[in-house]
Design a protein around this nucleic acid. Structure first.
Lengths: 348, 348
DNA sequence: CTGAAAGCGCTTACAG
DNA sequence: CTGAAAGCGCTTACAG
């Protein structure tokens, strides 16, 4: 059966509309709409009549009609632009996803997950987001050079990023942990327990997290009159494999290091087997401090000292900011504090 | 500025509509619609004129208007009803998510991720899905007793599940690996290499995967005249922690076992540290075989022998089936074959 | 092959 | 406090 009238599938019965409810309640359908939207100017009697009629008919608003009339979709995209494997191996993303899903649900907003890893997916994402299927976009781990970002900004899509978007700070609201401060605290801790030859494994240098966490490390060295040795700095891309590779490189180039500050827990966790294989004991021979405290940190062997990001605050703020931007407010950058958590890989 | 007219946010400029394109092209807007939908009955000249006009105006169809007119949303929900922690610790879900996202994207369908873990989220999910925001639902790891399922079926929402939904086989289409056959092959392998006291760690018994993988294990014992010993069977819930607990229980109740068949890789991976702590060498003292081959299997120490599910086929079939059901076709159950993959935890 | 028209189901000023 | 009416931007028979 082909029909242009949307029906309950299977039954062929039409769903009740606002008119059916109005008839049932003995009021105009404008009044039903007012009740539906909780507006003022409805008498108690009408209110009751409408509510009863809704219950009796099993009425449910048609979301598409509503969106057409209001211009709002009631949904928000969670856009993931990292290569797909990171979604699975870096707990950062799933923790954020969970928090955002929660915060969105509290506001009756729907989460649309978009993975834009391949070229084709990226083109489709731009089309979709630019076509106003969603009211706004939550951007995870943005890289500054990404052409998709510039296009989204040009299309004037409301965006809030997790981490500042280098080069788009004015146009894109962001929520970030205090990456620089957290990194400083971590390295100061290492200094305070006697480490003097501290290495660093960074995140990608086209992300604010990658840049700022390295910045914090350099700050502390400078403040303490310690020279920053290039051989003691290795770059990763957040992936576990890159963390392991960076650790191998450091052991090779700077075998005398007595500590390593790693820009993410996922990468830090990957350094542990490398160190064990090299015969270095953690923390006796070399201390390791990570960043994130996503949950893996507590389960590695030994458990990781790390810098905790308040993920619940981050996701909550991202959603709040996005509703602001959708409402027409100007972009803003929010920074939330971090705390150092000490475990076996570098006890206090 | 408050306005009921949707505008490009920021600029206040209205987006071009189908009428603007029609005027620009010098045709009626019905013709523009035909071009948009690739229908027949459009002359080459009109086609060209419309295409040019679309390019010139930067026109993009309003998805809400289209949905209102067609009764289709163009989106599909990926519904996750497991407690949230499983999303992160069982790679099964993320692998499926990735595959489904791909298959959906190929058909120009959008994936809406819904996590229905808390009571509140479940109520909202029912509301949302029953309200026809989406054209259909992809159900991951359904438990037979779940009241949400019954309600979804009553609301006649098109559904395809991953794994048969016990008790709703007639109403809900499903795609499942050959769980029973895969389990049989795994246990036969253990038998063939000389194991005689084979234990099993199952999945939840209100899921088809949980039931069928245990069934395959029992089949093989029966076929070989081996008595099924209750002490050698422990139940898990797919979580890592449950796998570790089940292994401890088995070592306690049946210390003489020489192999264990585990219903998922996540649980199997968790048995490894338990066995090591108990001083049992794998595979010398005890062999371990998992199920899934999600990727973790290859990275454990030692790497896991396991039963591989063809995830790409599963996600592809789920999406195909769902479009069938949305199109009005009757429910179907699809089973895809599995293969045994041998690694260090139980070499051939 | 094409256009005029009805219809999808809502929201929201506007006039009472 | 309430109703009639216009409008949101499409799709789709229907009549040419």
């Amino acid at each position: 059966m082909i029909s242009s009238v949307p029906t309950s599938p299977g039954t062929g019965r039409k769903r009740p509309t606002i008119r059916d409810v109005a008839r049932e309640a003995g009021v105009s359908y404008a009044t039903v709409s007012r009740v539906l939207n909780g507006r003022e100017w409805v008498s108690p009697e009408s209110l009751k009549a409408v509510q009863d009629a809704i219950a009796r008919t099993g009425y449910r608003a048609n979301p598409h009609a509503r969106s057409l009339a209001t211009g709002r979709s009631g949904s928000v995209a969670f856009l993931l632009t990292e290569p797909q494997h990171l979604l699975f191996e870096d707990p950062n993303f799933s923790v954020l996803l969970r928090g955002v899903a929660q915060a969105l649900s509290d506001r009756e907003l729907t989460l649309i997950l978009m993975i834009a890893a391949t070229e084709k997916e990226r083109a489709r994402a731009l089309d979709y987001l630019g076509g106003r299927h969603v009211d706004g976009v939550l951007l995870v781990s943005p890289h500054s050079g990404d052409p998709l970002l510039a296009r989204l900004v040009r299309a004037e899509v409301p965006i809030v990023a997790c981490g500042r978007v280098l080069g788009h700070e004015q146009a894109i609201s962001s929520v970030a942990a205090d990456d620089r401060g957290g990194a400083r605290a971590a390295v100061e801790h290492l200094l305070s327990v006697g480490c003097r030859r501290i290495a660093a494994i960074t995140g990608p240098q086209d992300t604010s997290g990658g840049v700022d966490r390295l910045g914090g490390y350099l700050d502390v060295l400078a403040a303490n009159g310690i020279e920053a040795v290039p051989e003691r700095i290795a770059h990763g891309d957040w992936s576990r494999e890159s963390g392991a590779a960076a650790m191998r490189l450091l052991l090779d180039r700077a075998p005398d290091i007595d500590a390593v500050f790693v820009a993410s827990d996922a990468m830090a966790a990957a350094t542990l087997p490398v160190l064990r294989a090299a015969g270095r004991r953690v923390p006796e021979d070399i201390r390791v401090v990570g960043f994130d405290d996503t949950g893996v940190a507590a389960t590695t062997d030994p458990p990781l000292s790390t810098v905790r990001q308040p993920y619940d605050r981050i996701s909550e703020e991202m959603v709040r900011l996005l509703t602001d931007v959708i409402g027409g407010r100007t972009p803003l950058a929010v920074t939330v504090p971090t705390t150092v958590v000490l475990r076996q890989s570098s006890p206090g």
